[in-house]
Design a protein around this nucleic acid. Structure first.
Lengths: 269, 269
DNA sequence: GGGTATTTGTCCGTATGTATT
DNA sequence: AAATACATACGGACAAATACC
């Protein structure tokens, strides 16, 4: 057996997909048809389809069939910005197309929105205590939001603040309302904390059940999520917040700029 | 059927793994043993194991058994640096542990090395032509390297330069040798091109066959790879190179700093 | 709403191949 | 060479989701 049969079937279908013979969104033959076509058992055909599914080339819909996946237009987020600005706010633009899209789609109109923050008092786990440089188990304020672009789920975001901020007068932090014009300027006004820098830590991991549901990711967990830890520092060099943002890897990209970029240098080149 | 049996088996094993009852590296019961334990068929047990495999919790070795995966210590790469420096060179440090590691491992000694560049003249595909702002199909120089940390595969890197650089006198670009002390200063010396800024574009995608082999990734493609496009700009704002680096997502993390970081702010906290 | 046909999902048993010890 | 363990492949049965009449 040079190559297992299910692999040969999978490669054959893969070629048809990548050559464009099978177009995005198009339905494949049913398992029974493929079974006849390749003279294999249904389970072997299913193994081939599973192989393609793991690679993100096709998706199966119970009761309907198997379809070539439609690649979404990715959301592009710029991570570098004014360190004194609201670190959570980031721009979303379109990228230049990877392939055969005739119409130049340019910058698409996109509107971001967030849910009302869900506020909790928690004991800081290691991942939170470490960046904030506090002892594990210390109480922290956690403000959690779901974020949408054009009403479709975009990211899950949780920001952690030291509990002391509230005791020192930043009462709004424990209220389940949006803080306008932003927590960065709110903390500057109430506590005199100026955000002068931040550090982003970018990782990829498998999604948990909550994330799988919110982002409508495939059940089998083959699509990972970016997990970005943003630690912001005040003028004394002390961490003042930790924002953890989660984005699916299949439809998000990130850009960072270092140095003085020329004016014309837009991602869309 | 509230939950399919294979899911129940998988969840049970998952709990044992995450609770630490099954330790990293430890061998699970064989399929036949699990078959007896859960009173299911071997195929159903295999479905459960496949579910765990897709999530990166276990790995199977033919002829040996099924094992709880060992999480590698991640490589952490800082993306922000001096925009005038050699953009390809980045530091690698250890992170603070996610969980119960008693010994503070601090900064581990790591040595990076690269293969001799593999040099080619290519016609720029869209992904290269776009960032370099040249027409698709224009000739470019491609310099490809494999990079290692402590002799283990770390990243695959390809840098593209406009063909004109050679015609203007930067002959070394088409030689299959390392350019010392770096191409950035070489281009500054020969062509007067000063790198004043760069932009990184971070994406995640499925690995191709070459990458799967080089990084020794699982065949089923469930582990993605970071693909980072670094476009560097000269003093006139013209793109002078595009470096594409590929890293497996399961053992690489990235850090970026914005603003003036306090001295003590190291990733290891 | 109900019923039926279609399609994928789950589960079983069995046989044989391949890799490792 | 033999034993063990996972990989591939087959065939069959029923369940669940969807679409359509």
């Amino acid at each position: 057996m040079a190559n297992p049969m299910y692999r040969q079937i999978a490669e054959d279908l893969r070629e048809q997909i990548e050559s464009g013979k099978l177009r995005p969104g198009q339905q494949l033959q049913t398992e029974l048809e493929l079974r006849e076509h390749y003279d294999a058992s249904r389970n072997t055909v299913r193994d081939a389809i599973k192989w393609l599914t793991t690679r993100g080339l096709v998706e199966t819909r119970p009761g309907q069939g198997t379809f070539v996946v439609q690649k979404m237009d990715p959301y592009v987020t710029t991570l570098t910005g004014d360190p004194r600005g609201p670190g959570g706010d980031i721009t979303v633009t379109a990228q230049y197309g990877e392939a055969a899209d005739d119409q130049p789609r340019g910058i698409e109109q996109r509107i971001t929105s967030s849910t009302i923050p869900q506020v909790e008092i928690q004991q800081a786990p290691a991942e939170v205590a470490g960046p904030l440089r506090i002892a594990e188990g210390t109480q922290v304020i956690s403000r959690h939001q779901k974020r949408y672009v054009n009403d479709t789920p975009w990211s899950l975001q949780t920001t952690f603040y030291p509990m002391g901020f509230v005791l020192q007068g930043a009462n709004k932090l424990i209220e389940a309302v949006d803080i306008q014009p932003g927590t960065v300027s709110y903390l500057a006004d109430t506590l005199g904390l100026r955000q002068v820098a931040y550090r982003d830590w970018i990782t990829v991991r498998a999604p948990n059940a909550t994330e799988t549901q919110f982002f409508n990711l495939p059940q089998d967990g083959r699509i990972g999520v970016f997990e970005i830890f943003r630690t912001a520092f005040d003028q004394t060099g002390t961490p003042m917040r930790l924002t953890v943002s989660v984005y699916p890897t299949d439809r998000n990209q990130f850009v960072l700029n270092v140095g003085t970029m020329p004016d014309s240098a837009s991602p869309a080149g």
